Simulated scan of single mutants.
Amino acid sequence: MNSETIILGNTLLDYSYALGIFLVLFFAFRIFQFFILRRLEKLAKKTKTDIDDTLIGIIKSLKPSFYYFLAFYLATYSIVVSDLFKKISEGILLFLIVYQVILVVQIFIDYVLEKSLKNKDGDSDSRTAINSISKIAKFILWVLGLLLILSNLGVNITSLVAGLGVGGIAIAFALQNILADLFSSFAIYFDKPFKVGDFIVIGTDKGVVEKIGIKTSRLKTLQGEELVISNQELTSARIQNFKKMQERRCSFTFGVTYETPSDKLRAIPSYITAIVGSLEGVRFDRAHFNKFDDSALTYEVIYFVDSGDYTLYMDVQQEINFEIVEKFEKEGIDMAYPTRTVYMKNVS
């Protein structure tokens, strides 16, 4: 057997050339990857951004199996091969290229979503939403990649896409409530109407947000039980978020008896001004003789507490109440309460 011996339409010399091309290309690809990685790693040490780390991850994702087959495929152009062999080789190469492109895009998806999570100071619930978005995006990516491979292999994907469309509509109708809650969780994540730890009021329900899930969110009510609410209901309802309150506007009323002298009635607003204005962290707004009620002369008081903390507000209100009682006792002013005076007419 010499170099001119023909095997499967090619001489041994042809096969030697093809082997040489394969080895040269394979080592060229490996050396190219090695130097690119070295260059990027040096660049990454000099920069503060993390995009170069992502590029390093992309280069590292190129596995030796990809180089092996790419070099093998290019080497076969120097020899005679059957049409079937060429078609199979092209199919395998197409699969490897699509697979590699999908890996690269997935790395970019993870980078963008992770960057978004860091910028938003994401908690565990935000990370759950990010992971869900990532999985959905990657699933769509793999479906598109599979359709591309089938299309290039000569498969008519028109009917397949139509079937997937009809099936998708049927599934969407069957799972419309679940999908509505899923997309509502994304809306909560991006819009941030509330987050874990916030005290919110939804209709007649109120409590502290403990968890924001994919389908439901959980509140711990003032009574201590856990309240589970669907995310769709949360995004369609009017929500009061007290955790974002920078200051609390407080108002209250009290009444004094009709027997109170007019000079003391005029002095009461100044008493309230002094009492409320002396408290730390409180901004007094106004105090007025408001109206004549059935059993009392009613005053209205408005002030602001420089915090959204409900306990602090109650401490302030309690101190105001104590000082009003003490001041009225000292001034001889009687607090009003519901009374009824009956006049008896003597008919003789």
Rank of each mutant, 00 (worst) to 15 (best):
K87I: 11
Y67A: 10
F85D: 00
V161T: 07
L144P: 02
R238D: 03
L40E: 00
D50P: 13
E300F: 04
F173T: 14
K211V: 09
F304M: 06
I239S: 00
F328E: 04
Y99P: 09
I6Q: 06
L222Q: 11
D50G: 12
Q246P: 15
S134Y: 05
Y271F: 15
T235E: 02
V347L: 03
L84A: 08
L147S: 03
I58M: 06
I302M: 05
F173Y: 15
V342E: 12
L146H: 02
S89R: 07
T235M: 12
F95V: 05
G308C: 02
K120W: 14
I102T: 10
N290R: 06
I130C: 01
D285V: 15
D293Y: 14
L40V: 04
K115D: 00
L222R: 12
F289S: 00
Q100P: 10
D315N: 13
L84H: 11
L25K: 01
I268H: 04
Q317H: 14
L148A: 13
N231K: 06
Q318A: 03
I102E: 00
Y258S: 07
I140R: 03
F186S: 05
I320E: 03
L19S: 07
T216D: 07
K211W: 08
I92E: 00
K63S: 08
G213M: 04
K120V: 15
A296R: 09
A336R: 12
S78F: 15
Q240F: 15
K244N: 13
A296S: 05
G20S: 10
L227D: 02
F173Q: 09
A287C: 14
I302L: 06
F26Y: 09
D334V: 14
F95C: 01
I102N: 10
R286V: 09
T298P: 06
K220W: 12
L179M: 08
D52Q: 09
V166T: 12
D198F: 07
E329N: 13
K195D: 03
P193Y: 09
F32E: 02
V228M: 01
K243D: 02
D14C: 01
T54L: 10
R238K: 15
K63P: 04
K60L: 07
L279D: 07
G332R: 05
I130N: 01
K244Q: 11
K45F: 04
L94H: 04
A172M: 11
K291Q: 14
S184I: 08
I171H: 01
D334G: 06
K206S: 14
I324L: 12
I212P: 09
I275V: 05
T221M: 06
Y15A: 04
I157A: 05
I320Y: 03
K206T: 11
V104R: 00
A18H: 01
G145K: 10
K195R: 14
G203P: 11
L312A: 10
T47R: 15
D294K: 14
Y68K: 00
E41W: 07
K48I: 12
I214E: 02
N2G: 15
I275C: 05
K118F: 07
I333V: 12
K138P: 00
Q317W: 11
R249M: 07
V228G: 01
M335I: 14
F190H: 06
I333W: 04
K60F: 03
L148K: 12
K215G: 10
E329F: 08
I157N: 03
V208K: 14
D181Q: 10
T260Q: 05
D181M: 06
S236F: 13
F242V: 04
